[in-house]
Design a protein around this nucleic acid. Structure first.
Lengths: 249, 249
DNA sequence: GATGATATCGTACACCGTACTAAGATCTAG
DNA sequence: CTAGATCTTAGTACGGTGTACGATATCATC
């Protein structure tokens, strides 16, 4: 376990990196790279080959430098991932004045996040709390907060509503993305995979133990696409929030 | 990339392990271990030291055998984790005939899952779709399905409602558990950490850029505990489901 | 030009999952 | 009862990881 002091030091250093405060001393040789370039290379790599294939060596190779060079820019891999997360938040559409009413706005926020998770699938595995919050994440938070302010909720409720929304979207995106990644990894669609597995499955399982499953019919025949599932859940969550808001007014 | 055939083979093998179908040939020496013992040791290790500290070598050491011995029982680490996930599902309370009505039942299911994620924190990082479903997961699914059957929903809607619930609970548990793990890792509570960071943070940030955040007041002062956040979101999600059910009847 | 701070990066360490192989244990066929 | 087949066990090794350390090259400053 590192000391508290060293944790504080790297946390503050990461904050500086996130907010673009460099103030490097003028002595010594010039740096040949920028943090932005490193973060960009890391994002490209993670997009292309997945988070598990993201390594400091490969990022360095992509930039044409030695692996240890990266450590003069970034304290470590975890902090690099933190920078990646904040960087991609910039892709989310900014203020959405077009949408009318809190519901449309929240819906857009949710879909933006869903889309982002599909554009950068590593997001659903990388997410870690306690990352020092960077400027782009802060922009997103400001936007989200604006969606639910001025509609009769207490500040505490506003925060909780946003936490609910992002919790749901993250969970749903995670499930959806994992299906896609699994299809990539094995080269089989879920249907193909299930076809291969089901004979063995039927041999083991005793369906008398699962009357409700049986009476509901084959789960697969009722399965919807991930997108439909997401939209369904989103509508329900928004309905639930609407109940709260209507009770407050 | 492995061949489709080998994927199929390990999938079927994992199914056999999950459902307890051994049929080992009688030739050769007897096995000194059981899969159950291996899974138990792995769960203890993950509980105690986290998923990142779970390694085949450490599990083997805990059992007093060589690392490679495990591979005669289990195809690989991923499959072992799949067995661990199914095994802990057995801890969830079984049929809940005590609860009245779908809402109370779903509430209990959600809280059981929330509690399970806190008892075995590695669950929130390990979760992977496309794991061949084991007997205990199947029990849970049967239970969940029974909660929402016979209340006027179509089979498709029942599946979607459950997917919504588990998506929300997973997302919320994930966030909550990550906070706890971060506190363990750094030895700082979130408040202590924020106290250390905020001076630097205030130096970088320009609050004029974030009027809503500012007007809402310091987010920390409105922060609730993870448990309260979870219960708040759960109530909203259930409200949303209730809207759907009332529209159907 | 000397000095001292700094960037670069090769090497090395401690891990990881697991493929391979050799050795020993046990059952079955003859 | 023996021989062979077949299994378990486990040591070794390979290619990967993050990153600590130290040597060297490069620059701004005195």
């Amino acid at each position: 376990m590192k000391s508290d002091e060293s944790h504080k030091a790297t946390s503050v250093r990461t904050l500086e990196l996130l907010w673009g405060v460099h103030e490097r001393s003028s002595r010594g040789p010039k740096q040949g790279l920028t943090i932005e370039a490193i973060v960009r290379a890391a994002i490209e790599l993670a997009d292309a080959e997945g988070l598990s294939a993201l390594s400091m060596r490969k990022v360095a190779e992509r930039l044409g430098v030695g692996a240890m060079t990266l450590y003069t820019y970034v304290p470590g891999k975890d902090e690099l991932i933190g920078l990646m997360i904040d960087a991609v938040q910039a892709e989310r559409p900014a203020r959405r004045d077009s949408a009318e009413g809190w519901r449309e706005k929240l819906e857009q926020v949710a879909r933006d996040n869903w889309d982002l998770c599909h554009r950068h699938m590593w997001l659903v595995q990388a997410g870690s709390e306690r990352n020092p919050v960077g400027p782009h994440s802060m922009d997103v938070y400001e936007d989200e907060l604006a969606c639910v302010s001025g509609i009769g909720l207490t500040p505490g409720e506003m925060v909780q509503v946003l936490s609910l929304m992002s919790g749901y979207v993250d969970g749903a995106a995670r499930a959806a993305v994992q299906v896609i990644q699994e299809e990539r990894r094995t080269g089989l669609t879920r249907e193909q995979w299930w076809e291969q597995i089901s004979p063995a499955f039927d041999k083991f399982i005793d369906y008398e133990r699962y009357p409700t499953v049986l009476s509901t019919g084959d789960a697969e025949s009722h399965a919807h696409g991930p997108r439909e599932n997401f939209e369904f859940g989103l509508a329900r969550v928004l309905d639930g929030i609407e109940v709260l808001i209507k009770a407050r007014t």
